[in-house]
Design a protein around this nucleic acid. Sequence first.
DNA 1: CAGTGCCG
DNA 2: AGAG
Length: 213
Amino acid sequence: MGDLFSGMAEGHEQLAPGAWLLRGFARDVASTLLADVARVAQVAPFRHLVTPGGYTMSVAMTNCGRIGWTSEARGYRYASSDPGTGRQWPDLPESFADLARRAAEAAGFADFDPDACLINRYVPGARLSLHQDRDENDRTAPIVSVSLGVPAVFQFGGLSRSDKPARYRLEHGDVVVWGGPSRFAYHGVLPVAEGFHPETGNLRINITFRKVF
DNA sequence: CAGTGCCG
DNA sequence: AGAG
């Protein structure tokens, strides 16, 4: 097996045009990120949202930043306050903003300034079926996704749901960035296996940054 | 509107 | 296991 991307920085794997897996990119700040996740969750608790189809999601979610993604019986939407508490979402921690900006830059997207940050918590068995992120108005900004805790298998496909997705094992500190021609790529997470990570126990935490406006 | 889910 |  040869090196398909010789000359590229170690640990940066191209998944598709405009899509990169930055292996271990957030490893050195992972503890700080997790501490900030805990702080956010204290103000905006994780909840299991209900899809418009009436099913309760296996992944628990919360948000920080100016606006947050939510799902309700009536539909998906970005909201400036937490429907669970009525309060505004907590501010985007500095550690989040800095990491998101640097990861986007490393993937070729300059000046990424996310206004939305969705935090997903997976227990063993939790999953996110194949979908597109398409509730954002800014179609030029990338998606930045940070994996923490127990590993998971990430599916990354094409622009059509029928395109067979490739699978990548994402570990603590890995970051995936996709934008440009891959901005609307289908992606998902297979059911998370039982596991243990010293910083999260049996949980997987994912932090996803988007620019809505 | 709803496929970020279920069925098979 | 995973198409539709």
